[in-house]
Design a protein around this nucleic acid. Structure first.
Length: 508
RNA sequence: GGCCCGUUCGUCUAAGGGUUAGGACACCACCCUUUCACGGUGGUGAUACGAGUUCGAAUCUCGUACGGGCUACCA
């Protein structure tokens, strides 16, 4: 009888949520849904110095946009709350104290200055970053080196202290990672990590173990950057709750930018978004553009993230969320890091735009174009336009340029495409077209095309020579769907107006 | 420096002892075409290196190189 699947995503609210974070959410979510389990969001806000107002709400917003909402969270509630570690502060101390009682942890009174001095004093070429470990701890001020009487006195006088784990000297700690198989470490090379900070808050190391236990987490997925501290967590599980209760670990490969691990600070430096949604740093006011605002569809975003490090073994690349839930397996996740390829990301988005029905795209497109001052009179018309132009849109934001001319008369023309070959014959041709269109009482694309070509033939002009000018008259540039489709949609009066207006511009 | 993880086309990846090493993005060419796209066809392009095990290695083992991560009272 295996226990219920319960997984968690545990971000710290320190800023924007980047690609790697969302992918971790996604893998958690897919794994939970696939196994009829629960997906929990736990806020790891134990570092008061790094707390950023608004960052927590931002995370909720991103998950909502991506369609990856948790079953339990500070917002959604649940049986295992509170889901914010700052609100669980009192829970952690007893576990730290228990470790001390059992001899697996100790009090340390070293000040930050003393620690800094230690790092300087023991720094050598061989060992550029000395750690607070078994080789050093007996030279520091802690309950291993200070007599019990004095410790009691220090504690009673409210001297600041931290609680550190006492790493065993020569033990091999190993565990089976779901992605990497057997991984092992020698405990003598890992330091005596702080478990409980001087302000009474736990560090990540203590909190993650205690909370995963209390929240009955069955599988713990996190980024590969956590692998080196895994032995600390394994040992804490062993000391506190027993290895049998420990979740199964999976350390996800990193998503790399052009220069290594993607970091929050890198923001828009690469020329592509790294955050899910726009993020404004409350301190500096600096705005970093997100995938959402760049014009990505959430379906495309999770699709591309899912495939960054995972595949189902077939050649399928486009997956709906439901398909991903059905096919996802953590064992098929790659162990190697993946460099993010923005070109491929754009392709995913383009594919999703092409495949999404106009009706579903409508509200997003309407918001975008009306925000830029376009007035949409008819909903049905908008849908028709979307169908006509969506093949040409890589981003949702492209819909503006690709469809404004359906709603607004062009202000400017690509004259270079027309003027060099403009002549009197063409001028006459278009005045005849105007005359013909004015008499038209069957304003249909096919009829317009037929008339247009007949007039061209009568004037001994190749249709190809006047189609481009006609396009520029209606659109303003050399792009867009079929010209006669456009003419039909904008209507008789507007088409004639645009020809007349453009004729003026062309003749100047 | 130490420790850990990793290494198949430029990028994401398939192939878990026997394949002409497959696909996708990007790129190039051609076709379609009234523009721009879409679409179609084809092309360039990879097992880091060296040993071993084996009849046979991208695949297993070891070493080397390279890349990445960690080395805080941050997560």
């Amino acid at each position: 009888m295996s226990k219920k699947v319960r997984v968690r995503f545990a971000p710290s609210p320190t800023g924007g949520l980047h690609l790697g974070g969302v992918r971790t959410v996604l893998y958690n979510y897919l794994f939970a849904k696939k196994n009829n389990g629960d997906f929990i969001l736990r806020i790891e806000d134990t570092d008061q110095a790094r707390y950023v107002p608004g960052a927590e709400q931002y995370i909720f917003d991103c998950l909502k946009w991506a369609g990856l909402e948790p079953d339990e969270s500070p917002l959604h509630g649940g049986e295992y709350g509170p889901y914010r570690q700052s609100e669980r502060k009192e829970i952690y101390r007893q576990y730290a104290e228990q470790l001390i009682k059992d001899g697996q942890a100790y009090y340390a009174f070293d000040t930050p200055e003393e620690l800094e001095k230690m790092r300087q004093d023991f720094k050598t070429e061989q060992n550029p970053s000395p750690q607070y470990d078994h080789s050093i701890r007996m030279k520091m001020r802690n309950s291993l080196t200070i007599p019990a009487e004095e410790i009691k006195k220090l504690l009673n006088t409210n001297t600041r202290y931290v609680i550190r784990i006492k790493m065993p000297e020569h033990e091999t700690v190993s565990f089976t990672d779901m992605i990497r198989r057997e991984v092992s470490f020698d405990t003598s090379v890992v330091d005596d990590k702080v478990l409980l900070k001087a302000d009474g808050m736990p560090t990540y190391h203590l909190a993650v173990v205690v909370d995963d236990y209390l929240m009955k987490i069955s599988h713990a997925f996190r980024g590969e950057e956590w692998l080196p501290s895994a032995p600390v967590h394994i040992l804490l599980w062993k000391y506190l709750f027993g290895l049998n209760a420990m979740p199964q670990w999976a350390h996800l490969p990193l998503i790399l930018g052009p220069n290594g691990k993607l970091s929050k600070r890198d923001g828009a430096r690469y020329g592509f978004p790294v955050f899910a949604m726009n993020w404004t740093d409350p301190k500096t006011g600096e705005l970093t553009e997100g995938f959402k605002e760049k014009g990505f569809l959430p379906e495309a975003f999770i699709n591309l993230l899912a495939l960054l490090g995972w595949n189902d073994g077939t050649e399928q690349e486009i997956f709906t969320k439901e398909e991903l839930i059905g096919k996802f397996s953590i064992e098929r996740v790659h162990s190697g890091g993946a460099k993010f390829d923005y070109e491929k990301a754009k392709w995913f988005n383009h594919e999703w735009i092409k495949r999404t029905e106009a009706g579903l795209l409508k509200s997003g497109v309407r918001n975008l174009v009306t925000a830029k001052g376009v007035i949409i009179s008819e909903e049905a018309l908008l849908e028709k336009v979307i169908d006509l132009v969506k093949d040409r849109c890589t981003f949702l934001t492209d819909f503006y340029d690709q469809s404004v001319f359906f709603f607004k008369t062009p202000e400017q023309y690509d004259l270079n495409a027309v003027k060099p070959k403009w002549n009197e014959a063409k001028q006459l041709f278009f005045t005849e077209v105007i005359r013909d269109f004015e008499l038209n009482n069957d304003w249909k694309e096919a009829v317009l095309e037929k008339d247009f070509k007949e007039i061209a033939a009568a004037n001994h002009i190749k249709p190809g020579d006047v189609l481009l000018p006609f396009r520029v008259m209606l659109v303003g540039g050399k792009f867009g769907p079929g010209v006669f489709d456009i003419a039909e949609i904008i209507g008789k009066k507007e088409t004639i107006n645009r020809i007349k207006k453009a004729l003026d511009a062309f003749n100047n």
